[in-house]
């Protein structure tokens, strides 16, 4: 029954590449690529490029190649070229996600030609990828709209629990910076004013974009759209950090800034505002209705001079709020 056994741990990279490039069954080529990628071997780049650009390569392999190339800022050109090669929607989605992560403004034009079923998760992913490029570069395009008031979750604060936020020392953040840079290669996050908190049993870190730290911060935040911060989640298995939520900012004319939290899929999960005065910025954030986030209310003061974030109130509901979209139920087999 077992079509294939695990590849031996000591198999050489060159042998893996030969399997991927050869005419072995797809599952075997896929396994070989998985092993090669898990080693993070740079030797894999030519094989990944060739796989992604080949119309004849199996879609799962091309998707895998797109995911990996989309973590390397030097590979934008390959992803752009790949958009010109006919591909399944699943592959296009991965290419677009990669471009969202690493792409320059040039990628926006190329991505405008990607057509996916409207309303599908893939089209949501591609839309988010466009927004991510635009917000990273402050282009003012593909803006995430303010959610309707009715979509902001209200919950019984008496039944809420406090979320404990702690300030992280820059040295602690610096320690994981290489991992963060791999996860977010085109966003420079600051080691200052970083906070950690726990939600259920997950460890989360809130890191500000470097652009939001220092003298230029107020100008950057009030004059153009930006990626203001990123929430990272630590996974024990696989061990490492991944982007859990992006906080985008939309400046208003009245000296306030709307902030929108989005999952990397593109689903909006939080919405709030920043009210700025001379030194301090008062931040508030609430949960937007979706099955992906617990209802919460967050308030903080950001001192731009001292580059210090002080959380004044952070509470979360222990369960879903009334009217919150509940998890879907799979069909019994």
């Amino acid at each position: 029954m077992d079509k294939h056994k695990e590849l031996p741990a000591d198999i050489h990279d060159r042998d893996l590449m030969a399997v991927i490039a050869g005419d072995r069954p797809e599952y075997r080529r896929r396994d070989a690529m998985q092993v090669l990628l898990s080693r993070g071997s740079e030797i894999s780049l030519p094989v990944l490029r060739e796989t992604l650009l080949s119309q004849d390569a199996p879609p799962d392999l091309r998707s895998m190649a797109a995911v990996m190339l989309g973590r390397d800022v030097s590979q934008e050109r390959v992803l752009l070229d790949a958009l010109k090669v006919p591909a399944e929607p699943a592959v296009l989605r991965r290419i677009a996600q990669g471009l969202g992560r690493i792409g320059s403004p040039e990628a926006l034009d190329a991505m405008s030609k990607v057509r996916l079923k409207s309303g599908s998760r893939a089209s949501l992913n591609v839309g988010f990828a466009r927004s991510l490029i635009s917000y990273r570069h402050g282009l003012g395009q593909y803006l995430i709209p303010r959610p309707a008031d009715a979509d902001i979750l209200r919950f019984d604060h008496k039944k809420a629990v406090s979320l404990a936020f702690e300030t992280l020392k820059p040295a602690e953040v610096k320690k994981i910076m290489p991992q963060i840079n791999r996860e977010l290669p085109a966003i420079k996050l600051s080691e200052k004013a970083a906070m950690c908190f726990s939600c259920l049993n997950s460890q989360l870190w809130l890191l500000l974009n470097e652009e939001m730290v220092g003298k230029q911060a107020k100008q950057r935040a009030t004059e153009s759209n930006a990626v203001m911060a990123v929430v990272l989640k630590y996974d024990h298995c696989p061990a490492g950090w991944h982007a859990f939520e992006y906080i985008f900012s939309n400046p208003n004319r009245d000296n306030t800034i709307d902030i929108v939290g989005l999952r990397p899929s593109g689903v909006i999960t939080h919405f709030g505002q920043v009210r700025a005065d001379k030194k301090d910025a008062v931040v508030s954030l609430q949960t937007v209705n979706s099955p992906y986030a617990l209802p919460m209310a967050f308030e903080a003061i950001y001192n731009t001079d001292k580059v210090a974030l002080k959380v004044t109130r952070a509470i979360s509901s222990t369960g879903a709020a009334e009217g919150q979209i509940r998890p879907a139920v799979p069909k019994p087999a």
């Binding site: 998707s63 989640k233 991944h242 992906y292 139920v329 799979p330």
Partner: peptide, 28 residues
């Protein structure tokens, strides 16, 4: 139990921790 590909809407193909989180949060 099963989630057909049409309902899974791409969540049958997972490429990152956040996508796994979404799958687990969305279905129960």
């Amino acid at each position: 139990y099963f989630i057909p590909a049409a309902d899974a809407d791409g969540m049958d193909d997972i490429a990152s921790g956040d996508e796994a989180d979404d799958l687990i949060a969305k279905w129960s």
